[in-house]
């Protein structure tokens, strides 16, 4: 267990965390402002990845692929918002869960129908591939560093958007009292569509970025979706800051737990038993984290307490 390994794993955890943040940011806005549980957010992630893989295959350009991913996810987001989701704002969570679950079925099977069951591949562009040497002689894949930077940049930009711009003011106001801002002359239904498109585009971007290090396949969105829910619940629903902190916590817990818990258990157990129980515990670690946070603070770390 060397320092280099520890730093590498921390970077891996960060990279995982910021990608979760891209997913969680949209979810937490959609939930915070519209009060909607959107299970189909994982499908938007998948759509982004498939769009990126297709465009990269056609044009060979990674930048175009990323733009296509965001566009495709945003368009799909606007479509489902206008056709389905809009009718669900006034209903209870149960109906929202069922309707967006239905959307997952439609999107997943639709994608399987169009692209087949085999995974697609999206290559890391040449200028981002290969390792870089960090100070201290650590070799680390450049692309993962790029992911961390992109994630942090998006987080910063989103923070500015929320706190400094007119639309950000409207989003925050919508979160607190949507009737009041409608009375003040803001077109609330347009605002909702814009937020939905923004969240969808971020999910699509995450899908495309992660798609280059994993395979692009049907059903890739749901595991990430569940983790993103864990993130926003830990962070407190509706809070971008909470989503960022929650995402980093979840990313680091998951990555470090998987590596270090088995090692930790080896201190007082036989190696094979330690490996088994360590990895069992580490796969549950983030859910335990979430349970602890909710029991300690039932509305998450940065959630509004009523």
């Amino acid at each position: 267990m060397s320092t280099i390994l520890i730093i590498e794993q921390i970077l891996n955890g960060l990279q995982f965390g910021v990608m979760l943040f891209l997913m969680a940011a949209g979810l937490t806005l959609i939930f915070g402002v519209m009060g909607l549980i959107n299970l189909a957010h994982g499908s938007l992630y998948m759509i982004g990845a498939f769009a990126a893989a297709t465009v990269a295959g056609l044009t060979g350009s990674f930048v175009l692929a990323l733009m296509a991913a965001m566009m495709a996810a945003a368009i799909a987001g606007v479509l489902i918002e206008v056709l389905v989701i809009r009718r669900l704002y006034a209903t209870d969570h149960l109906d929202q869960v069922l309707a967006t679950f239905a959307l997952i079925l439609i999107f997943s099977e639709g994608t399987r129908w169009v692209f087949g069951s085999f995974p697609l591949f999206l290559n890391i562009p040449d200028y981002f591939s290969g390792p870089v040497t960090l100070p201290g002689g650590i070799e680390y894949p450049l692309y993962r560093l790029v992911l961390i930077c992109v994630g942090l940049l998006v987080a910063g930009a989103l923070g500015l958007l929320i706190t400094r711009t007119r639309i950000g003011i409207q989003i925050r106001a919508g979160k607190d009292d949507h009737e009041m801002i409608a009375a003040l002359g803001v077109d609330i239904s347009k605002l909702y569509t814009v937020i939905f498109a923004l969240g969808a585009a971020l999910a699509g971007l995450a899908g495309a970025l992660v798609g280059a290090i994993q395979s692009v396949q049907v059903g890739m969105g749901e595991p990430v979706l569940i983790l993103a829910f864990v993130v926003i619940v830990i962070g407190g629903i509706g809070s971008i800051k909470g989503a960022l902190i929650g995402a980093l916590l979840v990313g680091l817990t998951d990555t470090l737990g998987g590596v270090f818990l088995p090692e930790l258990f080896k201190l007082f157990m036989e190696p094979s038993a330690a490996q088994a129980s360590g990895s069992a515990l580490s796969s549950m670690a983030i859910y335990i984290l979430m349970g602890v946070v909710l029991v300690w603070r039932p509305a998450g770390l940065f959630g509004a307490r009523k």
Binding site: F31, I37, H93, V97, I226, F229, V230, V233, I237, A280, S283, M284, Y287, I288, M290, G291, L294, V295, P298, A299, G300
Partner: peptide, 21 residues
């Protein structure tokens, strides 16, 4: 201890916990 959407999510988390276990 929680209610509403937090209840939905914490029960989901317990489900996932046992799934991975």
């Amino acid at each position: 201890r929680t209610a509403g959407v937090y209840f939905i999510m914490i029960t989901l988390a317990f489900g996932q916990m046992l799934y991975y276990f």
